[in-house]
């Protein structure tokens, strides 16, 4: 399932770019073509590079590629969570605009791009559907030496990839249950009763990144 969705990414990006820009975007097209031949982890690193390009250079081509891949998934996620198509459409635009505005806060040693986008979409869903505040944990601001290490970022992306593969390989019933939980279809007690998440692979990696952060702040 994951393989199929990944393969869709590059053509979608090219189509959107052609529609939006109508002019020479050879560089990004080449990137898209190259992506098809790479491993899934490298694709994840490519999304990271795109977000970094948005952060550092306000790179619209990179943004178009991220939009083409994630916007249809966010819309699907929101509609499964109970949003009408119109509300989901509006919400997708808000989420993607937030990604652009907050690109500087993205930390690839602590999250993959899909993880980060999920948290933005979830928060927007709570705003719109439940009209509630969402209390967020106190942020850990970057210290002066806290620029994430490239090796840490690659390792985290690899582990996230493994997590995705493990989820895809779960028995259908179990995977459906987890999807329902994240689409907001399970209550707390229903969640409490379910088990079997393939967790434990990336927690230590994230913990390492947090320790580095705490250390840099001292």
């Amino acid at each position: 399932m994951l393989t199929t969705t990944h393969e869709n990414a590059a053509p979608e990006a090219a189509v959107v770019l052609a529609e939006i820009n109508g002019q020479g975007q050879g560089g990004v097209r080449a990137t898209g073509t190259r992506r098809l031949n790479e491993t899934d982890t490298n694709k994840r690193m490519l999304w990271v590079e795109h977000v970094v390009a948005i952060r550092d250079r306000q790179d619209q081509a990179a943004f178009a590629a991220v939009f083409a891949h994630f916007a249809p998934r966010i819309k699907s996620f929101l509609m499964r969570s109970g949003a009408s198509p119109e509300m989901a459409e509006e919400c997708v635009q808000d989420v993607m605009a937030t990604l652009w505005r907050k690109a500087a806060q993205f930390d690839p040693a602590r999250a993959s791009v899909s993880t980060w986008i999920f948290t933005i979409a979830r928060n927007r869903r709570i705003d719109l559907l439940r009209k509630e505040r969402r209390p967020e944990p106190e942020d850990l601001p970057w210290g002066p030496e806290a620029e994430p290490d490239q090796a840490d970022a690659v390792a985290l992306q690899q582990e996230t990839e493994k997590l995705g593969a493990a989820l895809a390989e779960l028995p259908e019933k179990q995977r459906t249950l987890i999807e329902k939980a994240y689409f907001g279809e399970l209550s707390h007690s229903e969640i409490a009763a379910q088990t079997g998440l393939p967790l434990g692979t990336i927690k230590s990696r994230i913990r390492l990144a947090l320790d580095r952060l705490r250390h840099a702040m001292k």
């Binding site: 916007a71 966010i74 819309k75 509609m79 948290t119 979409a121 997590l163 987890i178 967790l199 927690k203």
Partner: peptide, 28 residues
């Protein structure tokens, strides 16, 4: 905090694996 990041990663993978629903032509 680390454990939560892990659960958020599961959410990210659910999003990643979600079926596409086409966005409007003027969405971008």
């Amino acid at each position: 905090r680390a454990a939560l990041a892990e659960f958020d990663a599961v959410g990210g993978e659910v999003l990643e694996a979600a079926n596409d629903v086409a966005v409007g032509a003027d969405s971008y």
